[in-house]
Structures are given as structure tokens and as C-alpha cells.
């Protein structure tokens, strides 16, 4: 999912050329550029959220929790739209899915916040945060996929002549 552009951008290997020698970024220029721009936008949005709602020392990291759950919900909506409802430009998925949403959500801050809470003597908050993020993130993506599929089915049924 993180490199959805590869099928459409990769040129076929030249005859006789060893496939393993092909540089990773070959033919990936446009995708890498939109992933970089999207990643910068997503990371900035996460940083902005952290400035707006700074985490309290030793408290439940609500901002990162919210960022991750919102990002999981949005990716559920987005993936159903671009894989089941319409076929977008091939750069839409790397830009928004891989770049913006991937840059917005974070796994490393999640893990290090748990480590920090444990280290500071808040094991209960750490465990609650660990479980709540996991549960809410998975529930958000499931719910988003389900609701978007239902809305898309209703929308296409409404368009068909009866």
C-alpha cells in the first residue's frame, strides 16, 4: 500500500538487463515528488495539532491519539473511493495515501510515548494508551470502509435508471 504507484510507473525491464540492478527510484520521480510534498503537508498538520493541543507531562497523549485515529478513518474512506468507486490519476494515491496520511499519522511517536509513560512511572496510562490507540485505529478504518461502501452503493443505486 505504501508504494501503490510502482505498477503504473515502472518501465518494463530491458531485455537482458538484470532486474536487481534497477535503481529503486527508477521511473519513480513523479511519485517520490508527490509523496515528499504530501509527507511534508501531513507532518506539518501533525506538528500544528501538537502546538494547538500540547500534551500534558505524564498524561494521556490525546493529540497523537486523535491524529492517528482521524488518519485511520480518512484512509478507510480514501481507499474505498479510489479502489472501488472511481479510478483517479495515478499520482493521487501516492500523494494523499502514502504522503499526506502517512506523514500525518505516526507509529514512532506512539511507541516512544508509551516508553516515556512507563519510564516516568505511569504504567497504567501507558497500557491504556497502547490498547486504546490500537483499538480505535482499527475500529476507525473498519468503520470508514463500511460506511463509505454503503454510501457508494446507495449513490450508484440512485444513479441507475429504475
Amino acid at each position: 500500500m505504501t508504494s501503490p504507484y510502482q505498477e503504473t510507473v515502472d518501465e518494463p525491464p530491458e531485455p537482458g538487463a538484470p532486474a536487481r540492478r534497477t535503481p529503486l527510484w527508477r521511473g519513480q520521480g513523479p511519485a517520490l515528488a508527490v509523496v515528499a510534498v504530501g509527507g511534508a503537508a501531513g507532518a506539518s498538520a501533525r506538528y500544528g495539532a501538537a502546538l494547538l493541543w500540547p500534551a500534558r507531562t505524564g498524561g494521556f497523549p490525546w493529540t497523537t491519539f486523535g491524529v492517528n485515529v482521524v488518519g485511520c478513518f480518512v484512509i478507510g474512506v480514501f481507499m474505498v473511493l479510489i479502489t472501488e468507486v472511481w479510478t483517479p490519476h495515478p499520482l493521487v494515491r501516492p500523494f494523499f495515501g502514502t504522503g499526506v496520511l502517512g506523514g500525518f499519522t505516526t507509529f514512532s511517536t506512539y511507541a516512544v510515548d508509551i516508553q516515556r509513560l512507563m519510564d516516568e512511572g505511569h504504567p497504567r496510562t501507558a497500557l491504556a494508551y497502547l490498547a486504546a490507540t490500537l483499538f480505535a485505529a482499527l475500529a476507525a478504518v473498519c468503520l470508514a470502509v463500511m460506511l463509505t461502501r454503503r454510501a457508494a452503493a446507495r449513490w450508484s443505486a440512485g444513479r441507475e435508471p429504475s
Binding site: T2, G39, C72, I75, L101, T109, A137
Partner: peptide, 13 residues
């Protein structure tokens, strides 16, 4: 690190 790691793709996958 924030942009390198992802929770959204992890959940979706």
C-alpha cells in the same frame, strides 16, 4: 521519524 512511520497504512493493511 513521524513521516517515516505510519499508523494509517498499518491499520489499513
Amino acid at each position: 521519524c513521524g513521516a517515516l512511520t505510519t499508523y494509517s497504512t498499518f491499520s489499513y493493511e
